[in-house]
Design a protein around this nucleic acid. Sequence first.
DNA 1: GTCCCTATACTCGGATAGCAAGTGTCCGAGTATAGGCGG
DNA 2: CCGCCTATACTCGGACACTTGCTATCCGAGTATAGGGAC
Lengths: 162, 162
Amino acid sequence: MRLSQGVEWALHSCSVLASLPPSRVLPAAKLAELYEVPGAYLAKHLQALSQAGIVESVPGPKGGYRLARPAADITVLDVVLAVDGVDAAFTCTEIRQCGPGECDPSQYSGACGIARIMWAAEDAWRASLRAHTIADLLGLAMREAPPQKLAATAVWMQEVIR
Amino acid sequence: MRLSQGVEWALHSCSVLASLPPSRVLPAAKLAELYEVPGAYLAKHLQALSQAGIVESVPGPKGGYRLARPAADITVLDVVLAVDGVDAAFTCTEIRQCGPGECDPSQYSGACGIARIMWAAEDAWRASLRAHTIADLLGLAMREAPPQKLAATAVWMQEVIR
DNA sequence: GTCCCTATACTCGGATAGCAAGTGTCCGAGTATAGGCGG
DNA sequence: CCGCCTATACTCGGACACTTGCTATCCGAGTATAGGGAC
């Protein structure tokens, strides 16, 4: 089980967008520059966030991205599902119904026990991610990043802000 | 995030192996027949379980696989990690250190906040899987499968058992 | 001087190649069995 | 009749193609701005 690289980028990007003044936007190219990642590829993930209604885009010059709602109303789970897809990691193919003594599917009450356990674990994973918001991420970064880094980022952002 | 198909097969296979009489074995080909899956591919996953010390193999005619320890001592997590790999789903590439104002890594105290949250969620997922054993799976199957299916499987197993 | 029009440049958005990992298959190494042979 | 030897057949184990999905990139559609011209 492996999580897409884009999840990390998307979470960091949302954290930065959360620090923008209201109604200001930041282009994808600048975000890519901030993290030294391929701009065109980061744009693809921001597109996914846009379609999920997490960020909204402003076209044209002076355009860019901003959060679509308050950072405290966006959970980490929202971002992860938007980038990585909403499908469950475990898919039950009902192989319990194969082999000797095949019965009518109606004979089985409820889902396969193995699937229930796997899905319960995923629910625990989702619940843990749902317990944190983008606002939490920004708070952590503000509190734990080196002061020198915070200052440099603030200066840089003043220059590229729209 | 997507879990390998082999995880489902491995869990079902372990559940069946748990129902074997002591010291008896079942060949991979018979397990594949029971679930109507490609035998050679299932063998690949059983190999992974063998290397992880979850099942042990008996070579030669009358050979096959059996659990390496009591079913109650094998957690679902053990099987999942053996088949899918032990690497964390989320990998932190420390992109927080990139961009303007780059500092010495020693300036950062502890892991990135985003990584901590993602890893905590994975811990919750692992804990949920660790709470169930192969013995639980067998119990569920015995209790919930249609009686007709249970009987047919028991007959089939008497024929192919080693 | 002011207003309007046009050309420009910059943004997002989706469609297009490349590559790694999961998927599926095959053949070789090793061993317990079954049959034949000798005593 | 009993024991030993050999050939056999069946098992696991690792090495080899193929497909799906993630990774990375490019070009076209749309818009706000800036400059120039007309009034």
